[in-house]
């Protein structure tokens, strides 16, 4: 059964549930400093592989950029 998730405000349809680590891999975000919030809660980097991504999950992936 397909699942629908939101990543950085954009809706994505995926073939099945997967781990956060696999999702980040699919998005090409395996390197560089990022932080991830799942449904409003921080997911520590150490839990990326064990964290499951399920239907209707909302994910925010952020980085540091220029700012004052």
């Amino acid at each position: 059964m397909t699942i629908e998730i939101t990543v950085n405000g954009k809706t994505k349809t995926l073939a099945a549930e997967l781990s956060l680590e696999d999702l980040l891999q699919d998005l090409g975000m395996t390197k560089g400093r990022i932080a991830v919030e799942l449904n409003g809660h921080i997911v520590p980097r150490s839990q990326f592989s064990s964290q499951r991504i399920s239907n209707l999950d909302s994910i925010e992936i952020v980085q540091a950029i220029g700012g004052g």
Partner: peptide, 21 residues
């Protein structure tokens, strides 16, 4: 030095250096 925290651009070139590089 100050930095801002913003969404990663999903389409961005993953080899492009980031500020903290």
């Amino acid at each position: 030095i100050t930095v801002a925290i913003r969404r990663v651009n999903l389409g961005q070139d993953k080899d492009e250096p980031s500020l903290l590089d």
